[in-house]
């Protein structure tokens, strides 16, 4: 079955929106459990990291399977990742801490996992702010590309943040880190291989 890129775009858009819609439905139906605030914080944190992993999967999918459509959609994917991160952080500030700035500042300074989360948030914010075409022109393609490579760091820091907050069960963050490791591994493997292919072709030429 072949569907147009446009329909595929909307389909993926809807898929990326579905965790948020599900959360809203759970909230509406009273399905958030005994501690809804904790549920929301964790749920949005989970989907912030997962949608970031989805965005980071675009290039590896092209490398491994030859698909080009995910790369064409990656701005939308990246902005969804940012949306979940922004919701997660807003939830922390507004619902969890209820604007208790004293406690928030102390958390950011004293709790390393919050410090790491903050750094990740700042990175992803700067990428979201420069995600429009005009920004590429203004920064120059090279600088823009270098800036947007920070997304790998954001993925790593997101996993670190997750690892640092769990009490004893490191399996869930390990699964997310494993997926990230696989995605980055495909890029590294591709990079190394194309470099050695380059060398081969260079040698043939000379």
């Amino acid at each position: 079955m072949v569907i147009s890129y446009r329909s595929a775009w909307w389909l993926v858009f809807a898929l990326m929106a579905s965790p948020l819609l599900w959360l809203m439905m759970l909230a509406y139906m009273g399905g958030l459990g005994a501690n809804p605030i904790e549920f929301i914080t964790r749920y949005l944190g989970d989907w912030a990291l997962r949608s970031l992993l989805v965005a980071l999967a675009a290039t590896p999918l092209k490398i491994a399977l030859g698909w080009t459509w995910p790369v064409r959609m990656r701005r939308m994917l990246g902005l969804w990742a940012f949306a979940y991160v922004a919701l997660h952080v807003s939830d922390y500030i507004i619902i969890d801490q209820f604007f208790d700035w004293d406690a928030i500042v102390k958390d950011i300074i004293k709790r390393t996992y919050i410090t790491v989360g903050m750094a990740t948030f700042l990175i992803l914010s700067s990428l979201a702010l420069t995600s429009w075409n005009g920004a590429i022109k203004r920064l120059g393609a090279k600088t823009w590309k270098r800036l947007h490579r920070l997304v790998y760091l954001a993925g790593v820091l997101g996993c670190v943040h997750y690892f640092m907050m769990v009490k004893a069960d490191t399996l869930p963050p390990a699964i997310h880190a494993g997926v990230l490791g696989g995605l980055l591994g495909i890029r590294v493997w591709h990079h190394l291989r194309s470099r050695s292919l380059d060398l081969v072709t260079h040698r043939r030429k000379s």
Binding site: D100, R111, T112
Partner: peptide, 19 residues
């Protein structure tokens, strides 16, 4: 005495909004 990763100064009573 805080837990190293979070403050113990406040708590959320289940069913309440503010800590």
């Amino acid at each position: 005495v805080d837990h190293p990763r979070w403050s113990q100064a406040k708590e959320r009573r289940i069913g309440e909004f503010r800590k």
